[in-house]
């Protein structure tokens, strides 16, 4: 899965989550997942992360996003749709 596909998957997951809770919003790469402008609360963030993991698993990709590494990174990978997609991309396609 390349970076664009990962971005699309994360965006779609966030968008589906928002519409399922009746909070339609335009989801872009900049959509914030944490902080004062976030479109989801903490439970929503966890739901999105679990759903992303689930969708990746459906595509045959096993990755844990709530790893110690993700949790201890100086800049949280969960800040935005883009940062989450980027983190997943680095996990899946590490640059040597």
């Amino acid at each position: 899965m390349n970076k664009d596909e990962i971005s699309a998957l994360v965006s779609a997951t966030v968008s589906d989550y928002l519409s399922s809770i009746g909070a339609d919003a335009q989801v872009t790469g900049e959509t914030r997942l944490v902080g004062s402008n976030a479109v989801v609360d903490s439970v929503g963030l966890v739901s999105v992360i679990v759903d992303v993991e689930g969708r990746l698993a459906d595509a045959g990709i096993d990755v844990s996003l709530l790893s110690d590494k993700a949790m201890s990174m100086q800049r949280s990978p969960f800040r935005s749709v883009d940062s989450l997609a980027e983190f997943i991309n680095e996990e899946l396609n590490p640059v040597a």
Binding site: G22, S47, V50
Partner: peptide, 25 residues
């Protein structure tokens, strides 16, 4: 399918349960 069920479940629970009570997993 799991994603379909999840969406249906969240929409259903949305008006009936506080957000933190809606199953995540």
């Amino acid at each position: 399918s799991l994603p379909m069920f999840k969406n249906r479940m969240r929409s259903f629970c949305n008006q009936k349960l506080e957000r933190y009570k809606i199953p995540v997993e």
